[in-house]
Amino acid sequence: MTILEEKIIRNRKHTNDVVISLSDISKKYIITHEKPTLVEDVSRILRFQKKEEYWALQNVNLKIYKGEKVGFYGPNGVGKTTLLKIIAGISAPTLGRVSTKGRIISLIDLEAGFHPDLTGQENIFLNGLIIGMSKDEIERKFKKIVSFAGIGDFITAPLYTYSSGMKLRLGFSVAIHGQPDILLLDEIMGMGDEDFQKKSQVKIKEIIGSEATILMVSHQIDYLQKYSNRLIGLKNL
């Protein structure tokens, strides 16, 4: 059983719109000791062994309303990231039902969709589409994205010429301009130089202060307490 311990920190006003609803979510992983191969599978069947299973989440029920800022904490391996992945639609639950409303963007590894041989401009379009923005929307916000990232003339240069800070800024800028209805933050990170860190923190706070629904995962409870109105601790029984 996965237990959710709830703590309401402050009653921020939110509507009665349910934007995320998890009913009886369970997630099973199958443990493989090396990479899964046909040989391993066949030999297991021949020896009448059952698959080794691991339940990362069991019977989770959760409703999140529009505009809520929810912080998740709990020990490593309790299923926080799995929970976020299921909400984001990256992973499917083994049992149970998920329903979400609106665009979900997660601020984890921002450079995953970049291609080193394409220009900054081409990468903005590619990455924007990957996180779910439409083409028109990217065209509309293109100037803003470039200026927030602060990469100037490099926008027409291929990405392999960028410094790692520039790539980070570009990735963050695209994600942040995606205007998510639901934003997922997995371990809030410090990125880029001091200047950009300030800028990105300001932007994140701006979003936290906005209408958007935000789910945060962190080990730093004081950070979560500062920004969320609902704290949820995950525990396995």
Partner: peptide, 9 residues
């Protein structure tokens, strides 16, 4: 895999 584990598309 990096992409698949990070975003829904």
């Amino acid at each position: 895999r990096n992409l698949i584990k990070k975003a829904k598309f």
